[in-house]
């Protein structure tokens, strides 16, 4: 079955809402299920090698940090009874449980967002956003940001090289390096402002106006409309349930 961006987006929203509204045990099950998503559907697989690397890096980082945080919570939050001692230090069950709950919620939020963003090209997200009533300037600035993100590192490299050629103290004492920071950032900002002015003019010269549609709308199937509406309704119901519970208790 083909899963489109709208369905993926609303499913991600449902998972995030679940992280805040459902018991941590359900959250843990959902967390495990997020790892099945790329196996069940190609729509959730990373779109590039860069995305795959980002996913692996974050997974490793999150796993290590979650483990360390559970351990530290168990040691530092002296609630409940001591479960056991680790290198002579007592670990408390209250802190342990708190650590597990927090880590589960955080990991569920992080991984559901990560699965969505790393498997969806930003241009597709932009074209979906275009269907909403968001001003096109926001989508345009997002696309322009991607353009600049592609170019800025090379520009920074060039300025670094130019400063080094002029003998700028890039590899000297801390204070001289701070001074170098300005000699690098100032030309970067200067050239970018000049470029922004010219780009602004160029857009105006092509008749850019607030109503313009930048990208073609991706087609949506009947099943994707039904699924995305179902996920959205479920999310709203969960929030409502949580509010009612909070008011009643």
């Amino acid at each position: 079955m083909t899963i489109d961006t709208r369905t993926k987006g609303t499913l991600t929203l449902l998972l995030c809402v679940s992280a805040f509204t459902l018991p941590w045990t359900v959250g843990a099950l959902l967390l495990l299920s997020t790892f099945l998503l790329p196996l069940l559907s190609s729509a959730f697989r990373p779109i590039s090698d860069r995305s795959r690397r980002a996913f692996r890096r974050f997974s490793l980082y999150a796993a290590v940090l979650a483990g360390v945080l559970i351990l530290l919570n168990s040691i530092l939050l002296r609630e409940g009874t001591a479960l056991f001692t680790f290198l002579g230090i007592p670990l408390f069950d209250g802190g342990f449980l708190f650590g597990v709950k927090t880590a589960t919620r955080l990991l569920l939020l992080s991984f559901s967002l990560l699965h969505f963003f790393l498997s969806t090209p930003i241009r597709i997200i932009a074209s979906e956003l275009q269907q909403t009533r968001i001003p096109p300037q926001i989508i345009l600035s997002l696309l322009l940001a991607l353009h600049f993100i592609d170019r800025l590192p090379a520009r920074i490299e060039r300025i670094f090289a130019a400063q080094e050629a002029r003998g700028a103290p890039i590899r000297s004492s801390f204070f001289r390096r701070v001074k170098s920071f300005f000699t690098i950032l100032t030309p970067l900002i200067l050239t970018s402002i000049s470029e922004s002015i010219d780009r602004g003019i160029a857009l105006e010269l092509r008749g850019f106006h607030s109503g313009v549609r930048l990208l073609d709308a991706p087609p949506s199937t009947r099943s994707s409309v039904i699924l995305s509406r179902a996920f959205l309704t479920l999310s709203l119901l969960l929030i409502l349930w949580r509010i009612i519970r909070w008011v009643l208790l």
Binding site: L140, L143, L144, H147, I201, A202, L203, L205, R206
Partner: peptide, 17 residues
Amino acid sequence: PNVGYVLQEPEVHISGL
């Protein structure tokens, strides 16, 4: 579109979008 204007630096006409 009554007046079309091509700037001196053509690369700024490439929107990058």
